[in-house]
């Protein structure tokens, strides 16, 4: 199991160090704090908007999940505001890029 093999299936997984309990992002087999092997667990898929902008009619948002992981995702509905709570509705890999589709909670 790897982050990407799960992401291909549409699952957002989180790498967490079995020893120091740190979330490892970007996902890796080894902890970037202590080099211990990580365990994979299901991600919460909920977080908040840190910042956003808009290209054409599409909002792209910098979001934070579990107070640690930051990614840029596309807002599929609603108007974002900084600090708003969001959830990841859909994620995966498209044309060699990760994608995250989010909406307001």
């Amino acid at each position: 199991m790897t982050f990407e093999s799960e992401l291909y299936k549409g699952n957002f997984t989180i790498a967490e160090c079995d020893k120091c309990k740190k979330i490892v992002w970007p996902p890796s087999e080894f902890c970037n704090n202590c080099f211990n092997q990580v365990i994979w667990r299901k991600g919460a898929c909920e977080g908040k908007i840190i910042e956003f902008s808009k290209k054409n009619n599409e909002y792209f948002c910098l979001i934070e999940i579990e107070n640690h992981i930051k990614v840029i995702g596309k807002m599929t509905s609603g108007i974002p505001i900084e600090g708003n709570k969001i959830k990841i509705d859909k994620c995966g890999i498209r044309e060699n890029n990760y994608f995250f589709e989010i909406s307001l909670i």
């Binding site: 992002w25 970007p26 902008s53 290209k55 910098l62 992981i69 840029i72 596309k74 990760y98 994608f99």
Partner: peptide
Amino acid sequence: NSRGEFKHPIFWASIFT
């Protein structure tokens, strides 16, 4: 990949701005 589909520099520049 944490930039998702938004890898072109105009996207980080927009967030900075």
